[in-house]
Nucleic acid binder design. Structure first.
Lengths: 294, 294
DNA sequence: TAAAAATACTCCATAGGTATTTTAT
DNA sequence: ATAAAATACCTATGGAGTATTTTTA
């Protein structure tokens, strides 16, 4: 039972196909046929049921699948842990698009000071992909908006931040420093992110609880687009505190909403069954410290 | 990181020597040098400190050692579990010499009826070796006398059995059915097993608590020898109930001791961190049922 | 100087590739 | 008829062996 064999086995089981798994592994299809033939010869029973062009796991195959996952994960974690000196090495961070450009740069700047030799990679992913990649071990840590419920992920809250009403300069509600009464925005056109972003969900939830039915006049796939559209008078929107903090445009104004303002929780997640690199732990510490002070 | 590589690595670490590990693995010494060179190249740092002819683990090597043990154990367990159909396959039982010939034959006969296709292997080992082999995963289950304390072993009590005074036919104490008063055996010559057997320890403990100082006139390495020596008038001894049960010799007589008779606990142990084959579980069940009725 | 690990070099096993056949839909 | 897995055959990589050198105690 070799490790490459087990990797191939997992890929075949996941794709339910030798041919597609071969592509995914970057080898020829006969190579996989041979690997599996050897594997089956070694363990003494078939692991796949070949019903014509259907490939399915046998009972033994199911057992092996679970075990092979453990073995491959353990081998990968071992490689990581042995190499881990806490200074060099790679840290792969995931963050949702409404956090990544606003919150991470400052945090990462401080992190780079602490561990200048580390290579840091940031992947911008929507919540769903982020969680999946975190679970698969492709991400060391994920920074995202809560709540997140996933059986195999560890989740920790960092902080809660308000959402601000974003208006174009010169808008009738943009004047003065006082909070905007909710009734005032009832008839305003709104710009939202598309539903791949959890932020639009948070805003929609807030509107429902406050009985607001804002008129949606546009949707964008980036918060930057929303901000620019607002600046040019296409409508209003809600943006998170972290976006406001780094927004220097003179064309837009942020205002608090009267009463209980909308907000979102920011948290961090990781796969507790995988090895946590010392870099990952340091980054987590930094996030916690940052959340405490900021 | 290949599994044979990790196996070699473990052997080298344990022997602190490439040459001796090579012998143990049945390969040449250069083969191991090359394997380790590849391993170190792959993980990017040395795992051994070669201080002249001293071979030691580096810090990374220590980490790898623990992980490699897990991986190898997991791979072996996987192979066992995948092959395990609960019927065929091998069950390796360990038992101490004062249990194996008296208790196991009847139990194994029943077990063979239940699972006729299974190959059962019995290893007769003294407690210490039995525990070590159980811990290493070379034994599926061990049957032995308690107490056993070992951090990585699961231990379960099966039953307690009395020890009987064994006398030659015609001995002055061998007459009648009544129990023998302790004072009577004070001056009798005794035959014991050598100290590799825990039974001699149990008997010595009993004698100490009852303030008996029996005269030891002989030691043997097998209970059968003790029994024969007793039969031929070389002295008395204590034998466990299970030995009495199968003793059909007309030359010996078993008698209870008056008051609190000596006894020993029989139990079973296994390594809970290793895969328990379905055969092993069935055998355990049988032992428990046997202990309940017998 | 002797014992042990590393290196040099050769050889063979075998894993994987290409081409093809088989099989089931 | 077609798509997918198995088989046949060949090649090349590389792992292990023998012989030797290097190292250090």
């Amino acid at each position: 039972m070799e490790i490459p064999q087990l990797r191939s086995f997992l890929k075949i089981a996941e794709h339910r196909s030798f041919t597609r798994a071969a592509e995914a592994c970057g080898v020829s299809q006969p190579a996989l046929s041979q690997q599996m033939a050897r594997l089956e010869a070694e363990i003494g029973c078939p692991v796949f049921e070949r019903q014509g062009r259907q490939v399915r796991l046998t009972e033994s195959g199911e057992v092996l699948y679970r075990k092979a996952q453990q073995i491959v994960a353990l081998v990968e974690d071992t490689a990581r842990q042995v190499r881990d000196d806490g200074e060099t090495g790679r840290l792969v961070i995931g963050a949702i698009p409404t956090i990544a450009p606003y919150y991470l740069p400052a945090v990462l700047a401080r992190f780079r000071c602490e561990v200048p030799k580390a290579r840091v990679e940031v992947n911008e992913l929507v919540t769903e992909s982020l969680i999946r990649n975190c679970q698969l071990g492709d991400l060391d840590v994920g920074v995202l908006a809560l709540p997140v419920e996933h059986p195999h992920l560890e989740v920790e809250t960092l902080f809660e931040e308000p959402l601000w009403l974003l208006l174009p300069v010169g808008h009738r509600l943009a004047k003065g420093d006082q909070a905007v009464p909710i009734a005032e925005i009832q008839q305003e056109p709104f710009l939202l992110l598309d539903d791949a972003h959890c932020l639009s969900g948070h805003i929609r939830n807030f509107c429902q609880t406050r009985n607001l039915q804002p008129v949606t006049t546009g949707r964008a796939s980036q918060l930057a687009t929303v901000q620019e559209m607002v600046a040019h008078g296409h409508g209003l929107s809600f943006v998170p505190e972290m976006a406001r903090k780094v927004d220097i445009s003179p064309l837009r104004v942020h205002k608090r909403l009267e009463g209980q303002a909308p907000s979102r929780s920011i948290g961090v997640c990781w796969n507790p069954y995988r090895y946590q690199s010392r870099l990952a732990l340091r980054f987590l510490e930094l996030l916690r410290a940052e959340a405490g002070t900021g």
